[in-house]
Amino acid sequence: MTGARISIATLRAATAPQEIVIAGVSLTADASGVLFLDSERLLIVADLHLEKGSSYARRRVLLPPFDTAATLGHLARAIARYNPARVIALGDSFHDRAAAERMGDQDRASLRALQAGRDWIWIAGNHDPLPPAALGGTAQDEIRIGALTFRHEPRAGACYGEIAGHLHPVARVVTASGSLRRRCFASDGERCIMPAFGAYAGGLNLRDVAFAPLFPARAPQAHVLGRQRVYAIAHAQCHAD
């Protein structure tokens, strides 16, 4: 273990509010796993995987059917915090094509309440190539806003200004005090892979080979979700599982 003593001042500096700069655009990374672009009053959330629980239930794996309510509850709190004019759901919002039909009435009502008074964009994902028309919002394959491009699946190779989901990045952080595995944003300043937001969405370690082709020049930094805030952590300090 390194014997470096870390001063309180350094700790303070590391716990200042978390900004991520992508393609020169500064976004706020929220501990819930959403991004907020203040200038556009735009909130971005990835991989909600609504109705994942009931999707398993179809195969008689009877997971607690509260995941949609839990996910929408977390999202409602994030939306209340930022009051965005527009929300982009970055694909895989629904765990499968029939997910929207299985949603309970109460969950539908919660979703409608979140959409009220703001633009809502469903980006198509591999789990939900055709986002449901019945649930409000508009469907799009990808969307471009200024220097930023929002799509579900990241393109291979360098891709300046892309914000994507799909991979569910998590970082395993090891220090002298212990080890943690948490969801994270992965970014090299040019592009960003967002953490999955869904209550039952699993994670893929940042050290997995799947991330390598996306960051050919240099390894991404992990912006790890803490309980209250996001912590920027060097790639070298993120371990394989």
Binding site: T2, A4, I6, T10, L11, A13, A14, T15, V173, T175, A176, S177, G178, S179, L180, R182, Q221, V224, G226, R227, Q228, Y231, A232, I233, A234, A236, Q237
Partner: peptide, 29 residues
């Protein structure tokens, strides 16, 4: 033996501080 405590976010803060310290040149990598 591993040290116990309410480490959770402190682990992250510690790791993040390492990054800051590294950037400001106060500790070696």
């Amino acid at each position: 033996e591993p040290v116990y405590g309410e480490a959770q976010d402190e682990i992250l803060a510690e790791a993040a501080a390492m990054l800051v310290a590294e950037a400001s040149g106060s500790v070696g990598p």
